[in-house]
Design a protein around this nucleic acid. Structure first.
Length: 279
DNA sequence: GGCCAGGGGATTA
DNA sequence: TAATCCCATGGC
């Protein structure tokens, strides 16, 4: 679970003192714990969740139907470097998150760091989301809808300390709300190229942010987001020029497709957590 | 006090 | 097309 929740794909899960994680997604609060038993695979426990909610939401959210062992084998074969990275973040699963929330979250992520991103999103939710429930003594709020944010004006988001990203969020919220979110939802069945084109047409969404949204909310597992960390790790591990993004994309396509996004997460986790030498 | 953070948009060249 | 600058914010 540490690998899943601390690999930079999500920002609303927090670790409890007992090692379990509590988080919000799809208007629900749940607490998840994993018990690893001897001679058994792990037993996942989801609290504050009905059977119907598990089938409607969490089974897909945690991507539980997918065989990650098979994907890891395919990525590892003939690539000892990737095998090493996978060994380090072996528990990673790509969550299938809400499109709208992921869109705004990764606009916030630009030129920012993860602790601050979490703080900004938390502030956005407590200020503009709806109070949902109290769990383990903490009050939880929904992620604000696009209609809610689209109704705001310049300056209304100042309390969230979003900096220059506030303007992007207002423009994007208005654009998404324009057709009731239909264009955003339609990406579900579009090709990665079509969905990428739509996303990069939104304010504050460039190639990197668009690829994160494709990967973390739209099941486009061949998307390969390139940020400063990925540039570093591609340079250190595969000896690619750090400013040559085209070569990085080509390398990912050649070596990791159709699971480039999974590979990217293993590399990201490897360099940000293990902290392999940067110089 | 300068550098950095899961970059993008606008302006130059 | 490709490089460069600017953009708020806060931790270090």
């Amino acid at each position: 679970m540490d690998h899943i929740f601390d690999c930079g794909q999500c920002f609303r899960w927090t670790k409890e003192t007992d090692g379990t994680y509590t988080g919000v997604a799809h208007q629900r609060v749940v607490n998840v714990g994993l018990t690893v038993q001897e001679h058994e695979s792990g037993l996942l426990t989801i609290k504050n969740c009905t059977n119907a909610e598990f089938q409607d939401i969490w089974e897909d959210y945690f991507d539980l139907k997918r065989d990650y062992g098979e994907i890891k084998r395919k990525l590892s074969i003939k690539d000892p470097i990737m095998a090493e990275a996978i060994g380090y973040g072996s528990g990673i699963r790509i969550l299938k998150q809400d499109k709208w929330e992921t869109l705004i979250s990764f606009i916030i992520s630009q030129n920012n760091n993860i602790p601050r991103i979490k703080g900004c999103i938390e502030s956005l939710c407590t200020n503009f989301g709806d109070e949902m429930t109290t769990f383990k003594g903490k009050t939880y709020f929904t992620f604000p809808s696009f209609d809610r944010l689209a109704a705001l004006e310049d300056g209304d988001l100042d309390c969230c300390k979003l900096g220059y990203r506030a303007g992007y969020i207002l423009k994007t919220a208005k654009a998404v709300a324009e057709d009731g979110g239909r264009a955003l939802e339609a990406t579900e069945t579009q090709s990665p190229e079509e969905a990428f084109a739509y996303l990069t047409g939104l304010s504050g969404v460039g190639p990197k942010v668009a690829n994160c949204i494709l990967l973390f909310s739209m099941s486009k597992y061949d998307a390969f987001p390139i940020d400063v960390w990925v540039k570093r790790v591609m340079n250190r591990l595969y000896n690619i020029d750090e400013k040559d993004q085209k070569s990085m994309e080509a390398f990912a396509s050649d070596h990791f497709s159709p699971w480039s996004g999974m590979a990217q997460q293993y590399l990201f986790y490897y360099i940000t957590k293990k902290g392999i030498s940067l110089k």
